[in-house]
Design a protein around this nucleic acid. Structure first.
Lengths: 133, 133
DNA sequence: ATAGGTGCAAACAGTTTGCATGTAT
DNA sequence: ATACATGCAAACTGTTTGCACCTAT
């Protein structure tokens, strides 16, 4: 992203003001409020450029289109239910991650995805029994 | 997955013997060695059923098709370079994760995805400086 | 025997590309 | 002025669905 255009400003703005991961379609809909003739091609190209610059972060949930968010908003756990496919955002609060990467790798953000069964789908019922199996 | 068919056996077998996440296309190619007329429809449907059962785990890298692996093989870090898009499998060895989920959530597997720049793409060069920024 | 599985082809959805036009620098 | 950005339409790729045939139970 080298030039400053109203399209790119709008894209960043809607992602910033929503404060959650948005799909290209969502960016397009919100963005057209600011730039009526905004095209999806532009969104795809801008988003890709912003990813390269680290301004945005891409998040993918199985079976859903890629969503883009500001890196600062990504400090939570993405819990994906193997059964219903829903994605739950869980607090990272009680979870500790001490990251140690090999030389040469620079971390700009991280995401912990946990797979399993959510309360609704759990075979047992609703009793509490969290933890890695 | 309720019935035992040679297609489904083959699908599980190739994923097990490769020991890494495979795309549907890869499953198809390897699988046709065992079942020549194996169709992609079958692979998609079987894989989805296995996901539901927790037998398989889906892994998604931005811009790439979904890959499927045995849950046991997922204990490593997926490092995705924001610049070149490559996915590096890094050892989980030095990294500590103490997971604590809210009541009712059952973890069957986890995946730590770290975004950043790999040694080739890092702005600086090759000096060592890992760690969350 | 029959419910469930398979595989082809066609439909879909998300994303990328070609190209003429527009615009920030 | 000019190199880069835009947006439409068409092409692509990964995935799903309709339907007739097959097969494990």
């Amino acid at each position: 992203m080298e030039r400053q255009t109203k399209q790119r400003q709008a894209i960043l703005q809607v992602i910033r003001e929503q404060g959650r991961p948005l799909t290209v379609d969502e960016i397009l809909n919100y963005g057209r409020f600011h730039v009526p003739r905004l095209g999806m091609t532009t969104v795809y190209r801008s988003v890709r450029a912003m990813l390269r610059e680290g301004v945005l972060l891409g998040v993918q949930y199985p079976g859903q289109p890629t969503r883009y968010e500001m890196p600062a908003h990504s400090d939570h756990i993405h819990f994906i239910c193997n059964c219903c496919g829903k994605v739950h955002d869980l607090p990272l609060s009680q979870t500790e991650i001490s990251l140690q990467l090999p030389d040469g790798f620079v971390a700009k953000g991280q995401e912990l995805i946990v797979y399993g069964f959510c309360p609704e789908c759990r075979p047992g019922g609703k009793a509490a029994d969290a933890g890695i199996s």
